[in-house]
Design a protein around this nucleic acid. Structure first.
Length: 542
RNA sequence: GUGCCCAUAGCUCAAUUGGAUAGAGCAUCAGCCUUCUAAGCUGAGGGUUAGUGGUUCGAGUCCACUUGGGCAUACCA
């Protein structure tokens, strides 16, 4: 429907050139009395043309050469909206399109040939992934899916660093637990990693090496073993919720390749850095940021900014047209420095989209759980997946705008009741499978012959909703908003359940029954496609 | 103190980016199964969109201030 309108307006632009001055958008009105689609173009143009919106609207309409077989009427309403009413039987064309495109219905080629990278999770291997990481992981993966749906070739990457203070403390935590097991322990510091997994790693080391590691330092075997074990667990955890990284990028590579040194001398050469108090500073205040920041400490060790900039340069060199960085809100102060640094070096920082998601608040037994990896006071993503399953985890994290805090009530999630809307969608899908099984037994098959019989409001509403899917996918993807997909699917499922209640298939006249089966199949296809974007399964039975 | 994000129904959240009468789910109440899955459907109640002012044909959305929260504000990442 929208495509037809766009076509129609493209034609009209030749006659009314002022239409080229604005972006003409079509929206589905909230009130169905206002038609199938609506545009506010006349109101926007009224200001530019210094005419009344109604007069502009009238002129536009009189120049529209629309097909009376497709559009029933076009009217001016309210302050100057132009409302379009389509012929009901035209709406059934969407079923044919869905039957043709099947699992590809909703995909578009708008960004075909473009490469995107989504960098997400990127947690250092100091402990198991928590529920907090879960939001990042699921949203990142789903953003990747959405980008694929609009044509991008997408790489998923996990950036980490196994050097630095955090990791030293991790290694030493394992060492102390190991010594404890040999009854040679000393006091375990409060600010060390308290988790059980540290003890498990220590136990494994004891099993393998006996007491031969007593003199070993924290940086060696202990840290290596910890990193290896923890990473293996992280990959397993991600795999359980259907996330596969294309690449794990170790910050260390940037040092080995000499990128850090090169970058440092590049900044120096361009007079973007200076030395003071034994440290090297980046002139961020000259680049429009708040204050200069240290890039190399007086100890000689770079701060995270330097490798982060170097890392992003590798992304540019790898030829990505779009680079997504997904962070929790605790990083909201760090990325502007990185972007400013890149921009100063001549890279197009517009190609980098930084998405910041707000924190997950965990509620357990009516209380907020304060999370800390260090104190081992957290709920792991694995535990959550054990409790509710991958589908609920993925759906739950995808269903909220990332700008808002996500309130994760463990009690509710455990219930697996109808408070989890994912079941509502899956139920609609399973219901259709069931219908198809039953109707087959009755000798009924889907048919595209008599779709014009689909004229009841419940049927028409479904058809119009199906039309919106490709648009919704595009919109969601371009704005990186996974939750819009869940909203769409819930609305579609709701319309289907209403159709199911009002429009029986078995027992209806054969032609009508077969047209309705086609509609049900189309709805099921779209439900399945939408769920696959979210990474949620579409069961045939529940 | 300063920067970023946020405040919408009892609770959890939407609102097509400035559009028409602010919508869903849960919870509460009242109905609907001898017929394709009741994990469903129908109806009811529930709102000064934190507050005040401003911008304009039109504001939950944009601007200013106020209040209240989250995250930052390191020579940690």
């Amino acid at each position: 429907m929208k495509n037809y309108l766009l076509q129609l307006f493209d034609e009209t632009k030749k006659k009314l050139t002022y239409l080229n001055d604005i972006d003409i958008t079509f929206t589905v009105p909230a009130q169905k009395e206002h038609g199938d689609y609506s545009t506010n173009a006349a109101m926007i143009l009224a200001k530019k043309l210094k005419q009344k919106p109604q007069a502009v609207a009238a002129e536009i309409i009189s120049n529209l050469e629309f097909d009376n077989e497709i559009i029933e009427k076009v009217v001016i309403a309210g302050p100057g909206f132009i409302n379009f009413y389509f012929i009901p039987s035209y709406n059934t064309n969407i079923i044919k399109e869905i039957f043709e495109k099947k699992e590809n219905f909703g995909r578009s080629k708008k960004y075909a040939g473009k490469k995107a990278m989504v960098e997400f999770v990127s947690a250092n291997p100091t402990g198991p992934l928590t529920v907090g990481h879960g939001r990042n992981a699921v949203v990142g993966d789903t953003v990747g899916n959405m980008l694929e749906w609009i044509g991008y070739e997408v790489d998923r990457e996990y950036y980490f660093n196994n050097a630095g203070r955090q990791m030293r403390v991790l290694g030493d935590s394992v060492r102390l637990r190991y010594l404890e097991l040999l009854n040679r322990g000393s006091e375990f510091p409060e600010d060390y990693y308290q988790g059980e997994y540290i003890k498990e790693i220590a136990a494994k080391l004891k099993e393998e090496f006996g007491d031969s590691l007593v003199e070993e330092n924290a940086e060696g075997k202990f840290k290596q073993a910890a990193e290896k074990e923890i990473f293996a667990d992280i990959i397993k955890t991600l795999d359980r919720i259907k996330i596969k990284m294309k690449n794990f990028y170790n910050e260390h590579v940037l040092y080995e390749d000499g990128r850090i040194e090169n970058l440092l001398s590049e900044f120096k050469k361009r007079s973007l850095s200076y030395e003071s108090e034994g440290a090297v500073w980046l002139k961020l205040s000259e680049l429009g940021n708040q204050a200069d920041k240290v890039i190399v400490k007086s100890s000689g060790e770079p701060t995270y900014r330097l490798p982060d900039i170097a890392y992003h340069i590798t992304k540019f060199e790898r030829g990505y047209d779009l680079m997504i960085d997904l962070f929790g809100s605790d990083h909201n102060a760090t990325y502007p420095d990185v972007l400013a640094g890149l921009k100063a070096l001549g890279y197009d920082s517009e190609k980098i989209k930084v998405l910041i998601h707000q924190f997950v608040t965990i509620m357990d037994k009516g209380e907020v759980v304060k999370m800390s990896t260090r104190k081992a006071n957290y709920i792991t993503l694995d535990e959550l997946t054990d409790e509710v399953g991958s589908d609920v985890v993925r759906y739950f994290f995808n269903m909220r705008s990332i700008t808002s805090h996500l309130n994760f009530d463990i009690d509710v999630a455990k219930k697996q009741s109808d408070e989890n809307p994912v079941f509502y969608l899956q139920y609609a899908h399973a219901r259709i499978s069931s219908i198809l099984r039953m109707t087959k037994e009755e000798g009924l098959e889907s048919s595209l012959e008599n779709l014009s019989l689909l004229s009841k409001p419940e049927e028409q509403n479904l058809l119009k909703k199906l039309f919106e899917f490709p648009d919704d996918v595009l919109y969601s993807a371009e704005n990186y908003e996974t939750h819009r997909i869940t909203i769409y699917l819930e609305e579609l499922a709701s319309l289907f359940h209403r159709f199911y209640t009002e429009c029986r298939i078995i027992g209806s006249e054969k032609k009508l029954a077969e047209a309705r089966i086609s509609l049900a199949v189309a709805v099921q296809t779209v439900l399945r496609n939408g769920l696959s974007i979210l990474g949620v399964s579409a069961p045939d039975k529940m």
